[in-house]
Amino acid sequence: MRCLGELESAVMRVLWDSVEPIKVREVLLRLDTGRSLAYTTVLTVLDNLHRKGWVQRDLDGRAYRYRPTRTREEAAARSLHQVLVASGAPDVVLAHFVASVSDEQAEALRTALRERQRD
């Protein structure tokens, strides 16, 4: 999965915040980028996200409804994994990361590792 640009990330936030699949016009109305965007710009971004595998689209009449292919948390975890792999030294990066987390985050990591061992 590739990294997202600023506008792609904003569109994904709209989709993740939506309860159900939404059309381009709805995405455009909910976007808060601080600038005016054209319908065709948002359509192009959604088409690119579909091509990259970030969103799925289903035809509803003459327009598509878009929804994310994974949750925000799954996407974040995948991005973290890609950073680890790209670092060339994932064990060192993990050690630095663990040293930087709060006590609550460390406990969440311990819990996740215990659950992983049970699987």
Score class of each variant (00 low, 15 high):
Thr69Asn: 12
Val42Arg: 01
Val42Cys: 02
Gly61Val: 13
Thr44Tyr: 10
Leu28Gln: 04
Arg70Leu: 06
Gly34Phe: 07
Arg70Thr: 06
His50Ser: 15
Leu15Lys: 03
Arg35His: 15
Pro68Glu: 03
Val42Gly: 00
Leu46Gly: 01
Val24Ile: 07
Arg25Met: 12
Asp32Tyr: 05
Leu49Ser: 02
Tyr39Ile: 13
Ala63Val: 13
Val14Lys: 02
Ser36Ala: 06
Met12Gln: 08
Arg25His: 15
Val24Leu: 01
Val27Ala: 05
Leu28Gly: 04
Ser18Asp: 12
Leu15Cys: 05
Thr40Ala: 13
Glu26Trp: 04
Leu28Val: 06
Ser9Pro: 01
Leu59Gly: 08
Val27Ser: 03
Val14Pro: 01
Ala10Val: 09
Val24Tyr: 01
Leu46Met: 10
Tyr66Thr: 04
Asp47Gln: 12
Arg25Ile: 11
Val45Ser: 00
Arg65Gly: 02
Arg67Trp: 04
Val42Met: 02
Arg35Ser: 12
Trp16Phe: 10
Thr33Cys: 08
Arg67Pro: 00
Gln56Ile: 10
Thr40Ile: 14
Met12Phe: 11
Thr41Val: 09
Pro68Ser: 05
Leu29Met: 10
Leu29Arg: 11
Leu28Met: 09
Leu46Asn: 01
Tyr66Met: 07
Met12Ser: 09
Val27Phe: 05
Leu59Tyr: 15
Arg70Asn: 06
Val19Ser: 07
Arg70Ala: 06
Gly61Phe: 13
Ala38Ile: 07
Ala10Tyr: 10
Gly53Trp: 09
Leu43Thr: 07
Arg70Ser: 05
Ser18Cys: 11
Ile22Leu: 03
Ile22Lys: 02
Arg62Gly: 11
Ser36Met: 08
Val55Pro: 00
Thr41Lys: 07
Trp54Arg: 03
Arg51Ser: 09
Arg30Thr: 04
Val11Ile: 05
Arg25Val: 14
Gly61Ile: 12
Arg57Phe: 02
Leu15Gly: 03
